[in-house]
Design a protein around this nucleic acid. Structure first.
Lengths: 133, 133
DNA sequence: AACATATCCGACTGGAAAAGTCCTATTTAT
DNA sequence: ATAAATAGGACTTTTCCAGTCGGATATGTT
């Protein structure tokens, strides 16, 4: 409950890794080995980040990835959004056009949930990948 | 991802329902029918809320539940904590003594995650069930 | 041209967690 | 006694996520 997916975790790790090397080109293999992340899974994450223009990809031998912008310009929200394909939603009734929830019509917590949702979005949008406690 | 569980949703709905009736005694059957929630599931949620002293239970015929304190004294965090049995954790490495995460030793996002975690807890603790947008 | 090493991408599988069901015991007002 | 409520353990079903597999495409090196 309320967990980030592994994909998002791996994405954050990868972005921070590339940033830590001064935005040199990095490969999936290199990152996966360094952090003990399943290669194929990380590969998919990187592909999504590239598609979402958070990172650049370079194909072919000597290929790899660099950041598309500085790490302090990449929010946690950017990463979540690009990897998951949707805004994070604490309940299925939020952020959808189709309302498939069986409770929907009688639901008394839609509005409160929206408020929670809004606050979470603030948290994730305001935090950049570069931030370290 | 980052979803509240149905149990928590149902718990919030139930609490707001009881509060809306001026803290009259309410039954599982009544609430389940009113909001189209599976009876047995709601029953378990209510039992947990009662055990966690968020609501009072009255057994026997004419029994049911009332709030143990005013709705503006019940935070979302209270409900999550009591129903889930743990604090919400956005990653398994947080809030545990055993570190079972394969990435743990090389993980560069532990600290940032802790910061996110802290902010989420603030959001959930500061919001009371009574709040309506 | 051939090869090695990358990214790209869809389909599939297994397992864990969440959602929901079932059954029985206990309590209590009538 | 009976009916209506909570209490609670055991179970099944469903859904989602992590991880795997196979093959296609791109590109630098030899």
């Amino acid at each position: 409950m309320l967990k980030l997916s592994k994909k998002v975790e791996y994405g954050l790790i990868a972005i921070r890794h590339i940033a830590s090397l001064g935005n040199q080109i990095s490969t999936v293999k290199e990152i996966a080995e360094r952090y003990n992340i399943p290669n194929e899974l990380l590969a998919k994450v990187m592909q999504k980040l590239a598609k979402g223009k958070v990172i650049y990809s370079y194909q072919g031998s000597l290929g790899g990835y660099t950041l598309a912008r500085a790490a302090d310009q990449i929010s946690i929200m950017d990463v979540i959004h690009v990897i998951e394909g949707t805004q994070p939603a604490i309940a299925e009734c939020l952020g959808k056009i189709e309302h498939t929830c069986s409770v929907y019509d009688n639901c008394t917590i839609k509005n409160p949930l929206e408020k929670i949702q809004y606050n979470l979005e603030q948290v994730f949008s305001s935090m950049k990948v570069s931030e370290i406690v």
